[in-house]
Design a protein around this nucleic acid. Sequence first.
DNA 1: TATTGTTATACTCTATAACTATA
DNA 2: TATAGTTATAGAGTATAACAATA
Lengths: 145, 145
Amino acid sequence: MTELNDPFARHLGYLLRRASAVMMADLGTALIPLGLRPVEATILSLIAANQGCTQSDIGRMLGIKRANMVPLMASLSAKGLIEKSRVDGRSQALGLTDQGALKQRDAIKAIDVHEAKFGAALSKVDIITLQKALIDIAGAQTPTV
Amino acid sequence: MTELNDPFARHLGYLLRRASAVMMADLGTALIPLGLRPVEATILSLIAANQGCTQSDIGRMLGIKRANMVPLMASLSAKGLIEKSRVDGRSQALGLTDQGALKQRDAIKAIDVHEAKFGAALSKVDIITLQKALIDIAGAQTPTV
DNA sequence: TATTGTTATACTCTATAACTATA
DNA sequence: TATAGTTATAGAGTATAACAATA
C-alpha cells in the first residue's frame, strides 16, 4: 500500500500541526547560519523589545518553565549575546550585548524572509483571516513554545 | 516587568505554533479518558481507513521514522487494539481488533467534539480559508507529527 | 508567603546507525 | 540493491520537586 486514505485531511488540529511543523523546520534551517535555534532567536528579539525584562518574564510569555529557561539563557550568555544586571537580590535585568544586538538584527532579517516566503502564496485578506483565526484558537491560554 | 511587548504577535509561524499547541493540549486532555495519546488515536483511525496497511505506510504519512513506530505499535498491541498478520516475510498487514474498532469509534467521537469546539468561533468561510491556507503552507512536504 | 534563579531528574519525542530477513 | 521491522542510543523539549536568597 502506497497511497493512504487520510481521514484527517480537513481537521483543523491536524492541519495546524503539519503547517506549524513545516514552518518551524524552515525557520530552523534559516537560522543555522546564525548559529541560533528558533527559540534563541525569539528570546533575543523579546529582550530587544523589552530591555530590562527578566528571564521569568520571557518564560511566562513563551510558556517555558523557569527551570528550562536556565540552560537557554546560559547558552545565549556563553555565546556573548546577552548580559545580566541585578535588579534586586532575586531578579536580573536582561539586555543584549553589542554582538547580541547585531545577531538579533540578522535574526529578524532571516525571520522576515522566512515569513514572507510562506505569506507569498496567500492574499492579504487571507493572511488577516488566518491571523485572526489563529489568535482566536489560541485564545487566552498560555501556550507551550 | 509584567506585560511584555510581543514583536511576533502577527507572525504566522509564531501564531501557528501557539494555536497548534493549544489544540494539541486540548486533544490530549480529551483523550485521557480513553487511555490514548493523540498519536495513538490518529494511528487507530488511519488503520480503520486503510485496513491492511503497514506501520511503515503510517510512519511515512505521519512523518514518524520507522524506528519510532516500533514502540507506538507495541503500545497499541499491548492494549489489545491492533493485530498484525504477515503479508510477506517483511511486511505485516495491520488491522483493528474488535476492541480496537470500538476504541477508534470512541476516539473519533472525542476528536469531533474537540474539533467542533475550536471551529465554533469561526465562520464556515473562515474555516475553508483556514484549511486552504494551512494546506498551502504545509505544501508537498512530509511533516513531522 | 510568594517569587527568582537554580539544580537534579525523568519522561516524551525525535534522529541516526546498524542489524536481520526478506524482496 | 532496496525495503520492513527492529534494537540501541543520543539529543532535544518539557515536566516536577526541591532549595537558597530575597521580597
